[in-house]
Simulated assay, not measured.
Amino acid sequence: MKFTTISIARKLKFYQLLVFDQVLQSGSLVRAAQALNLTQPAVTKIIHELESYFDAPLLVRSNRGVTATELGELVVLRAKSLLAELRSLTDEVNAFQQGTAGQVMVGTLISASTSLLPKAIRLLKQRAPGVLVSLRVGQMDQLFPALAVGEVDLVVGRVPDDWSWRNQSPSLDVEVLYGEELSVVAGAAHPLHGKGAISLHDLHTYPWVLPTRDSLLRRTSDQMFAAAGLSTPDNVAESLSILTNLSLMQDQRTVALMPYEATLQFVAAGMLKAFDLGAPMQFGDIGCFFSNARNLGPAARLFRECLYLAARAESDPQQATLDT
């Protein structure tokens, strides 16, 4: 059977593609049905309709759930882009008819999650309370593909030192928001606090919490130790969970490497204290990543404006109150 644009337009429905995408995200027909508030037979029927139309299986079913066939991967890749455009159309129609409304999907890395994004969201809610902001936390290798196909509108996080990612994702671009520093921190009662400037050599034998090995921050931490003529500490836990790291440091011995902005609220609360290592450590630039192949909807455009205002406060504490 040869497909044409007209034949596909007549047979396929956006709702079928939405269900198919949810099934693959959930990894299960049952969980997809729950997420969509449908019955499992209804979801199964829609998948069968799609497979009947394409005259080929789209899913591989096993005891561990469902995955896409090769054809299914092709269909869902295009479906994500179509659904992203449908979401933008919905936002624009709502904004036109009701005023500022809609939804913005934001991917974020740990470095931007604790300070910059809350400020931007507060600004957005002051201007447009009806806009729903959905955050997705992940690593670059998860968030960039999602941004490329429209699953998220923007990604906020550290700009990689290696810009080869642009060769892998040529449709993506970035605007730098501000420069971020790093802090080496521990519980406020750590025995080396209050001893003035110390070195990494002094901290090396203590327990450390370091970022996971697939993260940009881990590469930075490895370079930090190497520059000091040290190997990675032997006593290490790997974690990107701020709350887990905070709990570990309450033993008043464990040391962690964290983005400066991520530590501020815990330092202010007396839970953490930063070590004076004699000179500031640069983490890199924090940027807003976007797809130059897709126009942002009104909600996402408004959020990006709020993000830029919040970034000014990150780079200039004098603007911490943020004009509204």
Rank of each mutant, 00 (worst) to 15 (best):
Glu261Asp: 11
Ala256Cys: 07
Ser215Glu: 13
Arg218Asp: 15
Gln252Lys: 14
Ser164Ile: 11
Leu177Asp: 07
Pro233Trp: 06
His193Lys: 04
Tyr206Gln: 01
Asp153Thr: 01
Asp162His: 13
Ala268Gly: 08
Pro160Phe: 01
Val255Lys: 03
Thr220Val: 12
Ala268Leu: 10
Val156Pro: 02
Pro280Met: 01
Gly179Thr: 12
Ser164Pro: 01
Met271His: 10
Ala228Ile: 09
Trp208Tyr: 02
Thr220Ile: 01
Ile286Tyr: 02
Leu172Ala: 00
Asp162Thr: 10
Phe266Val: 02
Gln168Pro: 00
Pro207Trp: 13
Thr232Tyr: 06
Pro207Asn: 14
Gly179Pro: 01
Asn235Cys: 15
Asn235Asp: 10
Val159Asp: 03
Leu230Cys: 13
Leu154Lys: 03
Ser291Arg: 05
Ala268Met: 12
Ala274Leu: 08
Asn292Arg: 13
Ala293Asn: 08
Leu240Val: 10
Met271Tyr: 10
Ala226Phe: 11
Phe283Asn: 09
Leu216Asn: 03
Leu200Ser: 06
Arg158Met: 15
Ser241Lys: 12
Ile242Tyr: 14
Glu261Phe: 14
Trp165Lys: 01
Asp222Ile: 11
Ala279Asp: 09
Arg213Ser: 12
Asp173Thr: 11
Thr263Arg: 03
Ala256Val: 02
Leu257Arg: 00
Pro259Trp: 04
Met249Phe: 05
Thr205Ala: 15
Ala237His: 10
Ala268Lys: 10
Leu203Glu: 08
Gly194Arg: 04
Val156Cys: 12
Pro280Gln: 06
Leu216Phe: 08
Tyr206Ala: 12
